[in-house]
Write a protein that binds this DNA or RNA. Sequence first.
DNA 1: GCTTTCACCATGCGATCGCATTGAACGCGC
DNA 2: GCGCGTTCAATGCGATCGCATGGTGAAAGC
Lengths: 199, 199
Amino acid sequence: MPKKVDHHARRTLIADALMRVAADRGLEAVSLRHVAAEAGVSSGMVQHYFRTKDEMMTFALGVVGERIRARIERGLAALGEASSIRAQVRALLLQLLPLDKTRWAEGRVALAFLAYAAGRPSVAAKPAEDAALMREFVAERIRTARAAGAPGGAEPSQAATALLALVDGLGLQILSEHCPPDLAVSVFEDRLDALFGRE
Amino acid sequence: MPKKVDHHARRTLIADALMRVAADRGLEAVSLRHVAAEAGVSSGMVQHYFRTKDEMMTFALGVVGERIRARIERGLAALGEASSIRAQVRALLLQLLPLDKTRWAEGRVALAFLAYAAGRPSVAAKPAEDAALMREFVAERIRTARAAGAPGGAEPSQAATALLALVDGLGLQILSEHCPPDLAVSVFEDRLDALFGRE
DNA sequence: GCTTTCACCATGCGATCGCATTGAACGCGC
DNA sequence: GCGCGTTCAATGCGATCGCATGGTGAAAGC
């Protein structure tokens, strides 16, 4: 075999450029040529690693998902062993809020992709699956917290849906600048208090 | 003056076509030609009523906002005079959830516009203003409900932000099919119960 | 009746799009 | 050292884009 090249690394490099373009010029500015220019490579090379634009988009969407997943995992790991359920759920969902520059840009891209994926079921499948897993995770935590004496309320899976929706909504408000980040966090913490008790 | 034509009606006709295209083929399929074809007019006419594509987009966005506003007003009016505060807030926010075909399509368009308006401050200004008004409306209702004995909680304006965010998030989940509409409604009603008491 | 004014259409320009094609450069197995 | 397959750059095709242009037809004003 000739020239050994790390395919995945190259694809990720290109996907990064795509996200940079999408974050500060909008998804409609994402074209093979623009992405190639942003990545500092030829457009021929982009085509070499992604046969179609859709393939490139889908891959980039996957990268965003993977980044978020990794950040969540890191956040949970940084919590240590004997952390409270509230702290775990808090750590998980806080990673979904666009509170710093990185996550803000990522949120912008995610929003653009959300609109892009609407009506492309094959593209939306993976994120939907991730969301379902997350809901189940949160629901499970609520169940065990309730068993340990946390105040009751709606059905756990329903409460999880509500909490996820609240976080999504807060993220949206931050991205569209309808709400300062710290207000969003405080709203989020209030809801956490109601579910798991104040700490 | 020659031929009298209702400018606003023509523009609305075109905006309607734009929304139909955006709803079922995505915002990136919105072009002067496609919109014109969908509206059954020549592309020259579209250009006659909108000097630039951006002007057309902005107008269409305004139409969506106006539709939502009108629907809210109708919903509130249908409530009659002596309706409870809970019923008023419920009527307002229920109009924001994409519960039927019409509102679902509208939600899709709104989502696409949200991504479009990101990074176009002049486009995003009007929706931001509307959102602020709505938050103030809800906050005010919460204040008067509290004065009349409703259970306390977070600061009214903060509670309003939370409720708005929840509705936004639920809308998102419905649009991306992460959550069936009736579950979203039930989640929403639970939150209403917590704020204003069950009825 | 002639001009003016507005509504509308047809055409096309320059740019950009996604993508296919072609071929050169390069490192490996033989 | 020679063929071979991978990597990547160059080029161009056909389609489509936003938009400018110039023209036509019809109603209103004098």
